[in-house]
Each structure stands twice: as C-alpha cells, then as structure tokens.
Write a protein that binds this DNA or RNA. Structure first.
Lengths: 244, 244
DNA sequence: CAATAGGAAATTTTCGAAAGAAATCGAAAC
DNA sequence: GTTTCGATTTCTTTCGAAAATTTCCTATTG
C-alpha cells in the first residue's frame, strides 16, 4: 500500500525505506490498525507497543499523535491512547464525507484532465481487472491469497480518477478517507457473507471509468452509488459492537 | 480562540487548562504560527523552541507532528521542521476546500436544524455585531484593539451556521480550514490597505444568516461569495513572496 | 453491606543526555 | 578558480530513567 495517505508529510528523499523510526512506527501502527491486528477500541499500552515494535517511547508517541489527527487513534490526556472504535455512525460519516470530497475532485479532474490522466485511468483499470481475475481464479485456495495487492490496485484506480483535480488538500483527504473506510471493508473481504447479493464490482468500475472518460456528470453519480452500495453491504454483513 | 480545531483530539476533563505539556506546546505553536509570530517558511529549530517555550524536545516534537498533519508545519526526515509557507496557490486551495466543506455542512444544518440551532446563530450574530461596532468605534486608538475577541466572535458565528450538520468530520475540517485561512486573513486585518473597496462585512453576514434561517439555498451561495470575496481582497493586498 | 480513604502498582508523560545524520568550513587537488 | 574530500560543528532523533498521574486494591468507617 505504498503511496497512501500520509506520505506527503514526511518527505524522505528516495522512494525507499523510511528514514526515521518515528516514520516506521507510524506505518506499522497504521497498517496494524487498518488490518485489525490491533483491535478497535482497545487501549494501546506504550509498554506493549515498545515490545511489539522494538521501539522506544518517543517515536511511538509521535506516531500516535499523527494517527490521532487521522482519526485512527483516540487519546485522552494522561490516560494514553486507544484504537479508534468502529461504529455504524462513523462508517456512514466517513463514507458520505468521502463522497463529498471525491465527487468534487472527480468533477475537477474531468474538467481539466489531459491525455496522460486518461491513460493513467485506463492503465489502473486494466491492472485492477487483471488482479481481480487472478483473485477469483485462485479463490478458495491458500487463504487470503493476496488481498494486499488487490487493495493496492483498487486504491490506485480510484486515485487515478481524481488525480488531476489540482487540489493537494482534496487528494490528501481522499487518501485519509480511503484508509479510514478500509478498516470497515477489510473484514468483509475476508469471507463472502451469506445472503450477500452477488455484486459485479468490476462492472461498476467499468461504468465509472466510461462515464469519466466521456466527461459525463454520470461519473459522479456512479461513483457515489459505488461507495454507498459498498457501505450498505458492509453495514448489513458486519457484526457491530452492541453499543454502536 | 478557545474551541477551534484540535480540541476534539485530546480530551481533557474540564474546560480548564491543558493537562499535558504536549498540549501546551501544540496550542502555543499554533497560535504563534497563525499570528505570524513565527515567520512563514522559516525553519523551526528545536533548541530555539525549547528556549522560547521552556519545554523539552518530546512535547515539542509531538506538537509539531500534529501541526504537520494540519498543514501548518512542514517536516523533512532528519532535517527537522519548518513553518508552512504562504502562497497564492495554497490560499486558493484552502479557500475552495473550505467552501466545499462548509457548503455541504450548511445545507445539512438547514435541513435538520432545530430551534436551538437557529437561536444559537442569532445569538452569535448579535455578539459579533456588538464586537464589530465596538471595534469600529475604537478604531484608530491604541493599536489592534482586540483582534482576538473579534476573531473569536467571527469564528463562533460561522461555526454556529454549520453546527447542526451532524458530521464530526465536516466540523473538524471546517475548524482546520478556518485556522489555515486565518493565517492569510490576519495580516490584512492589521491595517486597512489603500485602494481596498469599502466592504460591508456585517451586511454580508446578515445576508447569510437571513437566507439560512429561511432555509434557502441562497445561503450557500452567499457564504461562498463571502469567502471568495475575502480571498480576492487578501490576494490583492498581500505582498506575496517572489516565488509564490 | 455500601461507601470511602489510603496506599501500592501500573501507566503516561517529561526530561536530559547520548547517538546519529546533515550542513559547514577549510585545505588540498585538479 | 573550481571542485573534492575530510574534519568539525550543528542539529535532529532516539533512548532510558525520573517525575507525575491515574488505576486498582484493601482496609476502615458509617
């Protein structure tokens, strides 16, 4: 998932490895929160994190401070940090905010989008399709084949659509909301839940792409539908904590 | 400026003083960046900050990490932090993003807004008017009378408009963008620049409020115009750094 | 028996020093 | 005169221990 939200902030020269332990802590904590390796709602004891990642307090606290700004971590003064809980309300808010941001970004991209932008979309769509096909062919084999690669392609496709919007803030927010909503998607992707209507995600992507290349306002509508449909399926198939 | 962006994050029990030095560092650094006490673009040497605020590295770095997420501070791995520079492009992006966020938040507020919401708007408008009048009466006296109080009232009015939107994310983003754009407004407020067309800001606020209470889509239009007008005046009357 | 105060343990937060990396400066080589 | 290399200095980053605070447990009181 190289390139997702947060990479703007610490400008490390090459594309290579992170230069500071603070950055390492940030990336690993974020990955573990998104993947669910760290349970939602649970307190993040510094001693435990120190142990887990082999880092000391300073870089850990700096990373947690940053994650707090991105709504992945909660903090209470003198009482430490905890993984931000999951709830219906938060998922809805994240989804609708994402739609607001990406709709505008897509519109702006379509307005000024050039040939390179179009080509990048087509390329990302193709790569996503290949990965999806490979995925479905291997489904049922050695567990969770390569969800990571799938996520990355999926992210790249949606990012390509809005890449030409011209606003660093919108792109950043989109990245951040992608990560936030990913927390909700991930558990659903692991196993197909019974009673879920078969859904042709590839067709939805195709529809969005086609409308985008036509520079049609339909693209915005399709994109919003795409996100809302995902949110609905997740809401229905998630076992929510009692109080949320 | 109690209550502006960032207060969500660290939940300190009472409304009282900040419980941690990390929080103190955050608030003071932010205030100094917004007020211009720390020059835009300049590097933030930790030794100097330590001296200035009487704090040590850890809380300072944690605060800087947070400010970085809010686009007030820039950081380069192993090369430290610097105050985010000001530029036309950034101001435009911040302004347009703010309009996007607040337009949606205002629409949602108008949809579900109840009596208390309306009352709070009227109250905030009134308080702002009183402060503005006092301000203009005292203008020309002992320098910069109480810009702080004025800012606070102004913030509270705009916040009251969108307060009922129901989305914590939108409110947070609005807060953040308010602070960001405040950096550009502040220098303009100090002295009225020659050639600036006399502008009846109070009338604009009145117009926004009236349309809002009527639940008219005009409110959204007026609000956007209000922000764009401010941005234009600032752009014209600011001495921009050569490369920006 | 519930409520409360006191104290021990666990945890967060802060500090100052040590380690590590980049920038600076000057001398030597081209 | 310009470039390159190396040592020195400056600065950031990290660490582990000390300080401050909360949490938990127990004994005591009403």
């Amino acid at each position: 998932m190289a390139g997702v939200a947060g990479d703007r902030r610490i400008v490390s020269e090459g594309a290579g490895e992170p230069a500071t332990l603070s950055e390492v802590a940030y990336q690993r904590l974020r990955a573990d929160i998104v993947s669910g390796a760290l349970d939602a709602g649970k307190p993040l004891r510094l001693e435990a994190l120190k142990q887990r990642y082999g880092l000391s307090f300073s870089p850990l606290r700096e990373a947690l401070m940053r994650l707090q700004s991105e709504r992945l971590v909660l903090s209470t003064a003198l009482r430490g940090f905890s993984v931000a809980p999951l709830s219906r309300a938060e998922m809805k808010d994240a989804t609708e905010t994402r739609i607001l941001i990406e709709s505008d970004a897509l519109r702006r991209s379509m307005q000024g989008g050039d040939d390179d932008w179009e080509a990048a979309i087509v390329a990302a769509f193709h790569a996503l399709s290949l990965q999806a096909e490979r995925q479905s062919r291997l489904s049922g084999e050695v567990g969770a084949v390569d969800m990571h690669a799938m996520d990355e392609r999926h992210y790249q496709f949606h990012r390509a659509l809005i890449a030409h919007c011209g606003s660093p803030r919108l792109l950043d927010l989109a990245d951040q909301l992608y990560v936030e909503t990913q927390r909700y998607r991930r558990p659903c992707l692991v196993g197909r839940v019974a009673g879920t209507p078969a859904r042709d995600v590839a067709a939805e992507h195709q529809q969005i792409m086609d409308a985008t290349l036509r520079r049609s306002e339909d693209a915005v509508r399709y994109l919003a539908e795409h996100y809302r449909r995902t949110a609905e399926i997740i809401e229905a198939s998630t076992v929510w904590p009692s109080s949320a």
